[in-house]
């Protein structure tokens, strides 16, 4: 399935889940996702990630709703616990495979969703800078420690220095891109043309219709 189509499907369902207060429905989402994961061949680390990560925010909401909720708060507590899992398991269908599919996802955004090339390539450029960002933050903190100052999260100097780096790098990258032939607003040709199969559109429609039908019994 094309990652952008997958993304659209997941986003629509996630948005609807935000407004649906149903434990049953959340569990159905988790169950369907779990079923699909069986085909995605996850490694044990990813399974662990799926189970552990939602526990903290889920239990956090559960306890506070149990203690401080009003009205039908016990139901809501279970809704929140299952919802956090549903969000992550549903989202994982897209994000866990993203490392392999990132290039085609961005290419689809540009070619099919007609997102401006400026934004797509800015995103690509910035993503490739991530290791450098991590290194730069270390450098900033160490450099100030050498002068006997520790930069904390609540000090403007820390952000100021980060912004200085952002200014410098964005300028360098812009120059680099232009010098490699990137022209703003120009029509681009593509070496790899992305096509979205008719089957993908069909799946999108079927899944979304099936989800709406699930809503009919009024679970909430």
């Amino acid at each position: 399935m094309n990652p952008l189509i997958k993304f659209a499907t997941v986003m629509v369902i996630a948005l609807e889940l935000t407004f649906i207060k149903s434990v049953t429905l959340n569990i159905i989402i988790i169950g369907v996702s779990a079923f699909l994961y069986l085909f995605l061949k996850l490694n044990w680390r990813q399974w662990l990630w799926l189970f552990i990560l939602p526990l903290l925010p889920g239990l956090g909401s559960w306890f506070s709703l149990m203690y401080f909720g009003t009205g039908d708060h016990e139901h809501m507590a279970w809704v929140m616990l299952s919802r956090v899992f549903a969000y992550l398991w549903l989202g994982g269908l897209f994000t866990l495979k993203l490392n392999d599919e990132r290039d085609i996802f961005l290419a689809t955004l540009e070619q099919k969703a007609k997102l401006s090339a400026t934004f797509v390539y800015a995103l690509v450029g910035v993503l490739n800078f991530m290791p450098a960002v991590s290194q730069e933050m270390k450098t900033i903190r160490v450099a100030s420690q050498m002068r006997g100052q520790t930069l904390h999260i609540w000090q403007p100097q820390l952000y100021f220095k980060a912004i200085l780096a952002a200014i410098r790098w964005s300028q360098n990258l812009a120059e680099g891109m232009v010098s490699h032939g990137f022209t703003e607003g120009a029509t681009r040709t593509h070496l790899q043309v992305v096509t979205i199969k008719r089957r993908d559109w069909f799946l999108l429609v079927i899944i979304l219709i099936a989800f709406q039908l699930l809503l009919l019994p009024n679970w909430y």
């Binding site: 401006s116 400026t118 934004f119 800015a122 995103l123 450029g125 910035v126 800078f129 991530m130 960002v133 991590s134 933050m137 999260i153 820390l158 952000y159 980060a162 912004i163 780096a165 952002a166 200014i167 790098w169 964005s170 300028q171 990258l173 812009a174 891109m177 232009v178 990137f182 703003e184 607003g185």
Partner: peptide, 24 residues
């Protein structure tokens, strides 16, 4: 229309802020 250098600046600022709080 967004200029390339503005978009890049915006993206880098976003990443730096994101990173600082990711550390958190």
């Amino acid at each position: 229309r967004w200029a390339l250098r503005d978009v890049l600046l915006l993206a880098f600022v976003a990443v730096f802020i994101g990173f600082i709080f990711w550390v958190l």
